[in-house]
């Protein structure tokens, strides 16, 4: 492809090709601080391409493909090329990665122990992780958390955090503007702006952390904490995993161990400050 960029996020080495320079330039800005190993072959390929050659110039529309292609995926305008790249990277990992059990969950770590937060889009798991990552915590990832079936450890996937809608202003108020990507307004997922994780979080992206607390946040409603049984946590996490079935017995073993060894809670919170207070409270109690 005409333009390309190599990005390593956690254990995954990507190569991203594009028919246009703009998405690659945007990725170069977001991922400038990530480790570069030119000698390392790519595990996963993402292609951003025009379905018809003239669509490269006229009302340019970006299709996202690569190793795996989802036929129903809608193209995006060139101004949202960065979102297409992000979705492409997610897709290739979700469908292609087999070394670890993938959880659709955010995670942060402290003292070598991980807090894992799983929830639907809109639960606030990304925002909570981003805000915690600006404090005492190491951001491990806002989208995927990887569980090593052998050791049971959580591994980081700290791609640029995808902030949405109200979360953009909440986080932007706390960070240096140089760590924010361009604002993409009115995407199919709402307004989106990326946050570059702190340098220390990127530098530590290969350090595993022991799962210590599992949370299932829900944004909205009064502050509440509800302990969750192993069975419910197990079922929710099978639904949050993109490769649980494909891993077979190894996936079952990893997930069983995770829910047996890690206390789990559902939390409801009306605003981010309350959410963070609940997290800190539960963390202190599980020590």
């Amino acid at each position: 492809m005409r333009h390309s960029k190599r990005i390593a996020v956690g254990p995954v080495q990507f190569r991203i090709g594009s028919d246009w320079p703009e998405p690659i330039a945007a990725l170069e800005q977001l991922y400038a601080g990530y480790p570069q190993d030119e000698a390392r072959p790519a595990d996963a390929t993402v292609c951003l391409f025009a379905a018809r050659s003239w669509r490269r110039w006229v009302r340019a529309s970006v299709h996202s493909g690569g190793d795996f292609v989802v036929p129903a995926a809608l193209p995006l305008p060139l101004s949202m090329g960065l979102l297409a790249a992000e979705m492409g990277m997610n897709l290739q990992v979700a469908l292609g990665w087999r070394r670890h059990m993938l959880l659709h969950a955010s995670a942060v770590a402290r003292d070598g122990r991980a807090l894992i937060m799983s929830g639907e889009s809109g639960s606030g798991k990304s925002t909570l992780a981003a805000l915690l990552g600006e404090g005492e915590w190491r951001l491990m990832g806002d989208e995927f958390t990887l569980i090593d079936p052998v050791s049971g450890d959580a591994l980081a996937f700290p791609r640029a955090v995808s902030l949405k809608n109200e979360a953009i202003a909440a986080v932007a108020a706390q960070v240096d503007a140089a760590r924010l990507g361009p604002l993409m307004a009115g995407t199919p997922k709402g307004d989106i702006r990326h946050l570059i994780p702190r340098a220390a979080a990127i530098a530590a992206m290969h350090e595993p952390a022991r799962p210590a607390l599992l949370l299932f946040p829900r944004f909205g409603g009064a502050a509440a904490i509800e302990p969750m049984g192993e069975g419910e946590a197990f079922v929710r996490l099978t639904e949050a995993s993109t490769n649980y079935v494909a891993l077979g017995e190894a996936g079952f073993g990893a997930l069983t161990r995770l829910v047996r060894e890690t206390p789990a809670f559902g939390i409801s919170y009306p605003d981010s400050a309350t959410g963070i207070a609940l997290v800190e409270q539960l963390w202190a109690e599980t020590k």
Binding site: R40, P41, R98, A250
Partner: peptide, 22 residues
């Protein structure tokens, strides 16, 4: 093989064994 390719290929062999069993 380069180490990362060897690791990726080991993942693939393990995953294929599971898929075949299924």
């Amino acid at each position: 093989l380069p180490p990362s390719v060897a690791a990726l290929f080991a993942d693939q062999r393990a995953a294929a064994a599971v898929a075949q069993q299924q």
